[in-house]
Computed example of a mutant assay.
Amino acid sequence: MTVHPVMAATLEDLYSSQTIVNGKYEKNRQSGFKRCLDAVLVRVSGDQRLPAKPEMTALRDKAGSFVAGFRYRDRMEGIPNHDDQGTYDRPHNLSCQYKPAEIDPVLASLGSRPWLAERPQLAVFLMTERGTMHYALDADDDRGMPMRESFGNAAGSLAMQVAFPTAAQLSRAGLDDQELRNAEMTKLDTLAKKTGADQALSGSLVWSDKELGWIADWRLAAAGKTIWQVRGVGFDEAFRVAIRGAAQILSGNGQPE
């Protein structure tokens, strides 16, 4: 099983977030601070519902006051500017660092708390179908690389780890893509543990012309089998929904919507 190791190893790593801004303008920085506040609250708590709370409006207005430090990284580093306009509008990663003493009271004011327990490594068992093409995502197939990388990025935003079974592991378990669709979570959890992960995250990703995007169904065994879905999205968003839902369940913040 191939692991994407993106778990937060330290509090400093956990209490951080980043977003993309154009240039280093003060206005864009303040907008970035607002997005970073949303992101760090979800990252620290595991609760994806926090940004929708009405109290967030006032908190975003002073988002910069919670930032202990920030830095920029030019996303086009090494690429020469084509004109003077490009000098100012080049996209940058804006990374924000926070202190628990600032963020924990904000979480408390929202009825939440930090999720400081060691975060489990999830083994991803995914069936993908588009038209006549269907396959199980594994750690070996080159066509699955963009999806594996996308899943790793989604996990990284929540300081979690994901891993993918090899084709041989799936074959030995008798799990082709059709079997994965209906496999019992107990069987997948057992296989996940045998391959070094903590538990299984199972999903199906089916393209819909009607929805103009993917329909993704996700399953996780925690306090019973939990199922959640998203429709009409790209696979990047489908995987973000998967990880956010898993984090919400595992952090004790209830069921995904």
Rank of each mutant, 00 (worst) to 15 (best):
S112H: 12
S112R: 14
R113P: 09
P114K: 13
P114T: 12
W115V: 08
L116E: 14
E118H: 12
R119M: 10
R119K: 15
R119Y: 10
P120M: 09
P120A: 10
P120W: 10
Q121F: 01
Q121T: 12
Q121E: 14
L122C: 04
L122M: 11
T128L: 15
G131C: 12
G131F: 11
M133C: 04
Y135M: 09
A136E: 09
D138L: 02
A139V: 02
D141K: 04
R143E: 08
G144Q: 03
G144I: 02
M145A: 09
P146D: 06
M147A: 07
E149Q: 09
N153A: 08
A155V: 01
L158G: 01
L158W: 00
M160T: 00
Q161T: 04
Q161M: 01
V162H: 01
P165I: 01
T166Y: 04
A168I: 00
Q169S: 07
R172E: 07
G174Q: 04
L175H: 04
L175M: 07
Q178E: 14
Q178G: 07
Q178T: 13
L180K: 06
A183Y: 08
E184L: 08
E184M: 07
T186N: 05
D189Q: 03
D189K: 02
T190N: 07
L191N: 06
L191Y: 06
A192F: 02
K194H: 11
Q199C: 15
A200G: 09
A200I: 07
L201R: 12
S204K: 14
L205N: 15
S208E: 14
